[in-house]
């Protein structure tokens, strides 16, 4: 079934593929983010309740969605790495962790900046905010665990276990606003109902969500390629690559 995947378990092929993905996706991501952000910040109408402050949604929501999306990806990759013992996938987990952490920090920071004028506080310990903060610690934990072992195989395994275990937190973040009373409001677009946002506010938001996804794909391919080259530094294909780039 997965025969077509097998060649990419070979680091050299995986490296070439992720380089290609990066080169292809990064211009698309830039385009989406420029269009979405300019449209959202300059042309979308102001909100009836929150005025101009609501424009933070164009960064807060995409960052938050993909902080969870990145974690799910990382967890699934970690799961496969543990079951099939594929070293390449462990590197993918490590490639994603810091990018996910940055997305989480971005979501928390924009949320705080938005919370101050609207709610009246930078931070509250409600279920949504707290579970998102735990997500940040999980990312940092995965990253730290990997580098706390001298033997990279052991480190990779430990990091994968934490990545898999932490997946439990993702549905908790998403449903926290439904399961408990929270200061944070419920979902605007990530629900089965019609989105509760006017159409001309929604479009730039969707473009930015796609933009953040593409940015995540591009950056993690880039980091993945680098991690591959680093871990295989003594191999012939890396030497060849270095010579080619130098000449």
């Amino acid at each position: 079934m997965f025969k077509w995947l097998h060649p990419y378990a070979k680091p050299e092929n995986a490296y070439t593929l992720s380089e290609k993905i990066y080169a292809f996706v990064i211009p698309l991501a830039t385009l989406c983010l420029i269009v979405g952000s300019l449209w959202g910040l300059l042309f979308a109408p102001t909100d009836y309740q929150q005025g101009e402050s609501f424009r933070l949604i164009y960064f807060h929501v995409p960052a938050a969605i993909w902080s969870m999306g990145a974690y799910t990806t990382m967890g699934v990759l970690g799961f496969c790495a543990l079951v099939w013992q594929i070293r390449t996938l462990e590197l993918a987990v490590i490639a994603i962790a810091p990018i996910g952490a940055i997305f989480t920090i971005l979501a928390l920071a924009t949320g705080a900046i938005w919370g101050k004028p609207m709610w009246g506080t930078w931070w509250v310990w409600d279920a949504r905010l707290t579970s998102e903060l735990i997500l940040l610690f999980l990312y940092l934990g995965v990253f730290a665990l990997y580098f706390s072992f001298d033997d990279k195989r052991t480190g990779g395994k430990a990091a994968c276990i934490l990545a898999v275990v932490g997946i439990v937190n993702v549905p908790i973040i998403h449903y926290s606003v439904e399961w408990w009373n929270t200061l944070h409001q419920g979902a605007t677009i990530t629900k089965f109902d019609k989105p509760s946002i006017a159409g001309d506010m929604l479009w730039p938001l969707l473009i930015n969500i796609v933009g953040f996804l593409l940015l995540f794909i591009a950056l993690s391919s880039y980091r993945f390629a680098t991690e591959l080259a680093k871990s295989e530094a003594h191999r012939k294909w890396v030497l060849k690559l270095v010579r080619k780039n130098l000449s």
């Binding site: 109408p45 102001t46 909100d47 009836y48 309740q49 929150q50 609501f54 949604i57 609207m118 709610w119 009246g120 506080t121 509250v124 200061l183 409001q185 419920g186 979902a187 605007t188 509760s196 946002i197 006017a198 001309d200 506010m201």
Partner: peptide
Amino acid sequence: LAKHDEEYMPP
């Protein structure tokens, strides 16, 4: 603290 809902629309 003010709690707002998840609806966004022009005035």
